[in-house]
Design a binder for these strands. Structure first.
Lengths: 343, 343
DNA sequence: TTTGGCACTCCAATGTGCAGTGTGCCAACG
DNA sequence: CGTTGGCACACTGCACATTGGAGTGCCAAA
């Protein structure tokens, strides 16, 4: 829905939302009048507020209370009125420090980023790690742990490491293992995880490949290793900080929120939508297709490696979030992460 | 402190605590009288309760309310009066299923165990993984990721796998790497992690070892890999279930609890005490040296491998916990885990 | 179009009364 | 002497009424 608002309506909506974000309480006409630059009387402001209510941008909790923005109103605010605050030097430094990959692989970097997002925003931080379409196969190796045990190790191009124990039905010599690893590496290098899995499927289905018992093993083992890679995982941190937010003070509300977040499947859909867009996106309430979570909002941005979107990061908090603060944080973090990951 | 109670006093304390555990509310004399086998009048029971109050085993929230057990009273109950419930067949099966190592290494098993403990007890489950004195070195390997990058992989005897990326200052050939790995494995096998680290320290300090540049590298690299092993880590699960407990309903209380749990250092001390004892231990309130956590209790038991205690597992919940249920769960789980880990 | 005034609505805080539950003490009982 | 019933008293929790404050909507005047 597109709204055509007069400049006065916009101004008042802006002031009202700003006040609501700070106070979490319904805002009355007098409050607005006090800080209105044009010195309008409360009565005039009431008229405007009444119009905005009719349009569905504001609502009253009860007949004689102040107004609070509806989800629609918040969205209009976020899309049209929001003024970004500049980040301080300190904040930039903190973000850069935490995202700086100290060469310990992408998952460690992303984990630290999640924590940093939570700390800087004071809400919950989240990061969606690259999905199987994005993870690039680099190398697979097999280490003998005993006569009948293997450790399979997968390394992605960004340093994601995954290992899996494999129980053998028959012994394998060192040279056989070497041959297996070589074969896998030769035929899978450069593929995405999805493509690699598919290729393995095909080779296993292909009867002719049966001619070499060893190569067949190679496929079976790498299938096991690759099957375990938790690609597209959703990492959270700082959920506890949401307890400080009045909206989630009550045990039951907080619990429902956390449980909804745990249900990662659905959240992933939202994040997928986010990764198609460019730059920061704001999802508010029902927008996010998270039923019963209309008090919740998410600020997310895709992050890239070498020009391709590979994941999403962001912040989850109350719909009444301090967007002017959070948006630049998320935006900047996504950029920094991208730079850190670029090869 | 040792209390000498008459059998009547014991009986009444038992009934009172049992009722309090079920109701979470102060218990009056009439309530006790109703289910008292010897058919005493409320007045007589009041006398006994008054005595128990003087002894510090019971307390009154206010002058004319029922009694609730003090921490001291709970401890007496746990140590002297507690009758274990037998586990049902179902519960045994569930526990066995979840502890059954499907050969994916000790950390996966312990993680699943934590979750299971939380699910079965309806409180928070916790597991302290083996510390550096307990983890046995089995193998270390180095994989070339590029001309100047290594992946170091450490495998413990129980299948704990740890990997670390290592940035090289100069190239290494495949054979050099092989020599390094062989040297490490030869000199460290069978040691505990602590011993291995110490030995590496010593060799590095020893100037004579300088005669071989390669062997010196071996020590430096393995030091990096072993340094990363998160030994003695504390794993939690099901904290959210504590929100259902009336004691932790309020945001602030719950928050403090979780924060105290996160402060793992102090908790580890308690767990260390637990691992020195044999069988299930119950820590209630200040007992646990966790200030401001007098409403909290922990039921813990050490678990063993091949006869040696290597870690602790247990349940954290309200002091008013259903011990008769939780104690056998923790006890049985520790035994099952021990069996699963025995080689 | 803007403004001040006024009646009206509703919430939140406060006070009051009352029923319920529990204690402590005492005198009586076996 | 331990046990019991009775009684005065204490405190909570709930329902209910009262009040002050904040806010709206509408209207008439500027």
């Amino acid at each position: 829905m597109v709204f055509q608002l007069t400049s006065r309506q916009r101004e008042i909506l802006d002031l009202l939302v700003a006040d609501y974000i700070a106070s979490a309480a319904p805002v009355g006409s007098r409050t607005i009048a006090k800080c209105y630059p044009g010195r309008l009387s409360p009565a005039s402001i009431r008229n405007v507020m009444s119009d905005l209510t009719d349009m569905g941008l504001l609502a009253q909790p009860h007949i004689s209370a102040g107004r609070i923005p509806t989800t629609e109103g918040m969205r209009y605010y976020a899309e049209t009125l929001l003024k970004r605050r500049e980040l301080t030097e300190d904040e930039c430094t903190i973000i850069r420090q935490h995202c700086d990959g100290d060469e310990q692989g992408i998952s460690a970097v992303l984990q630290r980023t999640t924590r940093m997002l939570a700390a800087v925003s004071h809400y919950a931080g989240l990061v969606l790690t690259p999905g199987p379409q994005r993870v690039l196969f680099k190398q697979i190796e097999f280490i003998r742990l005993g006569s009948r045990r293997l450790l399979g190790i997968f390394v992605s191009q960004d340093g994601l490491v995954q290992n899996r124990l494999i129980e053998l039905t028959e012994e394998m010599t060192f040279t056989e293992l070497e041959r297996i690893a070589n074969y896998c590496n030769r035929s899978l290098t450069g593929l995405t995880l999805d493509e690699a899995r598919e290729k393995i499927e095909r080779e296993l289905a292909d009867e002719r490949a049966d001619y070499d018992r060893i190569l067949r093993r190679a496929m079976v083992y790498s299938q096991q290793v690759l099957g375990d890679v938790p690609a597209g995982d959703l990492v959270f941190d700082g959920e506890l900080q949401l307890l400080d937010v009045p909206e989630f003070h009550e045990a039951e509300t907080f619990r429902r929120l956390i449980e909804a977040l745990e249900e990662k499947r659905r959240l992933s859909d939202v994040l997928a939508r986010c990764s198609e867009a460019e730059g920061v996106q704001i999802f508010i309430g029902a927008d996010a297709e998270l039923e019963q979570l209309d008090a919740v909002a998410m600020v997310g941005a895709p992050y890239m490696r070498d020009g391709n979107v590979i994941g999403v990061l962001g912040v989850i908090g109350p719909a009444r979030m301090d967007y002017s603060h959070v948006v630049p944080i998320v935006d900047f973090t996504a950029k920094v992460i991208g730079d850190a990951l670029d090869s």
